[in-house]
Amino acid sequence: MDRLTSWIARAVFLFLYLPIAALIVYSFNSSEVSYRFDGFTFRWYAELFADRMLLEALRTSAVVGVIAALVATVIGFLTAFALVRFRVKGRAFFVGAILIPLIVPEIVLGVSLLTVFSTAGIPTGLLTLVLGHVVITLPLATLVLMGAMSSLDPSLTEAATDLGASPWVTFRRVLFPLLRPSILAAFLLSFTTSFSNIVISTFTAGVGTTTLPLRIYSTLRTGLTPELNALGTLLVVATLGVILAVGVSQMRRILAGPTTTP
């Protein structure tokens, strides 16, 4: 039986990579209708970089992603610091409150944001997109940083304080360098989440602030183009970059809990 489940597991890994492999192979396929593999070409990549609307959407997504991730990381840092380093009353309540956006279906978050923005007379655009993306990235950034801070030896900052360092100096010289990999991880995970979000963006984007996923979605409704395969391939490569930047061991700690086995 163990052998059977092992084979199923191996088949699942194949299942995980078949679509990605097809995507990559077909992005270099010179055949127009992607009917059969005709030969190798970079043509779709060239067309991709000539597609004005797609590049515009890419820019919007990058801007929204960077701002939302920065805001989420800064607020997440403050929150994690307060929850881990202070004896805050009602700690469980605060932690629960911050995790709400992770449990509530994104589509409900999206429609309620849209309703509130339209009631308050805030036009949908860059601001509403960023606010919507902060909502869904803040819990992630906070969780990553809380995990990192609780595994930090508190005597390090205590020593700095005892030696006369001001809170700011303690942060800049001790806390920040020690937490830099986790801060980067919080930022990159938030950015990735924002960058690939479509549900919240559907309700918070305005005219002229079409994000990349929204653009891809509207293109796909008329049909798949080889150009999109090229874009997908580049995004898979970017994902590998993010994983390398965050680091495998840290990624594992974030997604599968702290290491208990050596």
Binding site: F13, L16, Y17, L18, P19, I20, A22, L23, Y26, V33, S34, Y35, R36, T192, F195, S196, N197, I198, P213, I216, Y217, L220, L224, L228, N229, L231, G232, L235, V236, T239, L240, V242, I243, V248, M251, R252, L255, A256
Partner: peptide, 27 residues
């Protein structure tokens, strides 16, 4: 675990339309 993380972090729409490439006509 990384082999599971890569598809997980790949853009949701890319993961979806990759199935059109894989299963669509001529795929």
């Amino acid at each position: 675990l990384v082999l599971v993380i890569i598809p997980f972090l790949t853009d949701f729409l890319v993961r979806t339309f990759a199935w059109i490439t894989l299963l669509g006509s001529g795929g």
